[in-house]
Write a protein that binds this DNA or RNA. Structure first.
Lengths: 249, 249
DNA sequence: CGCGCGTTTGACATGACTCAAATGCTGTGG
DNA sequence: CCACAGCATTTGAGTCATGTCAAACGCGCG
């Protein structure tokens, strides 16, 4: 079966999407970071058909909640999200933060329901990749599957080194590591590695790093005292990234 | 291209393997737990051709080390392994334990090199899945790719809830959670959920849970005092799994 | 059988937590 | 546009869970 059989209706569809400002993958600002990377042009057309674009969420709104039936993976398009899980008695752990181009929901693949809660930290939007289709389409697009494998593997590796942070690092090392990690991620996304905005609350940071809010506050003021950072509310400026990296342990 | 083109030489090859006691996947005791699950019979023949069986390792021997070039995924066939990563200044974190049927190396997919160290805890053996081939073959066997996605996703979900343990649980809750988790894994593998052997040292357990060895010792004796467990060196017997689950927090 | 490592037990130290209170910021309604 | 309410952040003081250090014990391997 040739792919061009299905091509004509698709092009019409894509045109419709353009009208609704639903930028096709190829034209998306995240193109370089997102799923399509490594896909052929024909593959992209198929992917474009699959993606549900521009779902918007405002601050504190749930993208999904534990036990919601698993239906789609999400790619952050703008803004940021946090994911959390909880103990039976209600203690909560922030398991990750997600920025544009990053995937949310990878830990629920082939589970009946999501394994965590995903909450917007600010006004944000995502592309949804309905997983049923993704799987069918994936069988025709091996490169798509490989992209998924790569993403999963990368997040897994990240979580392993986060275990090292949680298990073996001091409060200062944790915060330094966290700031450096954010800095790198923003840099990868084409933003400043030095100046950025902490869209999550101090509470979220503390929770994520396994610390108390007060400790975050104290360490941040200490870092500021050392001239390592300048802090202005949610805005932070890393004044000596090299020295900060040395503090990561 | 029909698959039977390649079938005849394969059958000869499989016969050779049988002679060398290299049990084909279909006849393997781990069949139910391992990769082949969900594959069709024809697929299995292809997979069998790919797998390098019966690589043996003795206690403390490395399966791979950080920065070794990534070449294969491994499935534990017998025995057990731990994986570790380290800070630049030499502190080490045990990131996981692996038992028969479980995959090692998933965090290195599409990386140039392994991201961790994998070390045998006892005399153990693995099946190696060379990844170059796996990828090629995967393009012809979507079900294999899906198995891989599922495995990765499951390990990711496990690591997320391990973050909850490291970040938010007390020493007692950590150890209780750990013991229950082992119990479940052994049960899944057809072994007793009550009596099993801790193949890893107290040090490894402590390290993994973000605690000191002494703390493990103390909590274990406390659990024994409460009649929750009976401990005999590396052998442990869970005397009240329900009560232990209640301690998991 | 003995050596050495792994484990247990005890005493003490401390990093980070908890509680408390002051201060600052943000979004909302009049 | 301002003022206030309510939440987030900071700072300070005291406590505690778990770590560190030290020493005895015992099991398993050669």
């Amino acid at each position: 079966m040739s792919q061009s059989d299905t091509l004509t209706p698709l092009i019409v569809d894509l045109a419709k999407r353009e009208k609704k400002h639903q930028v096709v993958c190829e034209a998306c600002a995240l193109y370089r970071l997102c799923l399509p990377l490594g896909l052929h042009r024909d593959d992209l057309v198929v992917l474009d058909q699959l993606v549900k674009r521009r779902q918007s969420y405002k601050r504190k709104q749930d993208l999904f909640t534990t036990n919601d039936t698993f239906s789609a993976l999400y790619v952050v398009r703008s803004g940021s999200f946090k994911t959390t899980i909880s103990t039976s008695n209600g203690r909560e752990q922030v398991t990750g933060f997600y920025f544009p181009g990053e995937f949310i929901g990878l830990d629920a693949i082939h589970m009946p329901s999501y394994q965590s809660n995903a909450i917007a930290l600010e006004s944000s939007s995502v592309c949804a990749l309905p997983f049923d289709n993704l799987q069918q389409v994936g069988e025709r697009l091996p490169r798509l599957q490989i992209q998924l494998l790569t993403r999963l593997s990368r997040e897994l590796a990240g979580d392993k080194s986060f275990m090292l942070l949680l298990g073996k690092k001091t409060a200062e090392e944790k915060l330094a590591t966290y700031l450096i990690s954010l800095s790198k991620r923003f840099q990868d996304r084409g933003f400043s590695a030095q100046d950025f905005r902490l869209t999550m609350s101090r509470n979220d940071i503390a929770n994520h790093l396994g610390l108390a809010v007060e400790t975050i506050s104290r360490v941040l003021t200490k870092f500021q005292g050392l001239g390592l950072v300048v802090i202005n509310g949610k805005d932070i400026s890393l004044k000596d990234i090299t020295k900060m990296e040395a503090l990561c342990g």
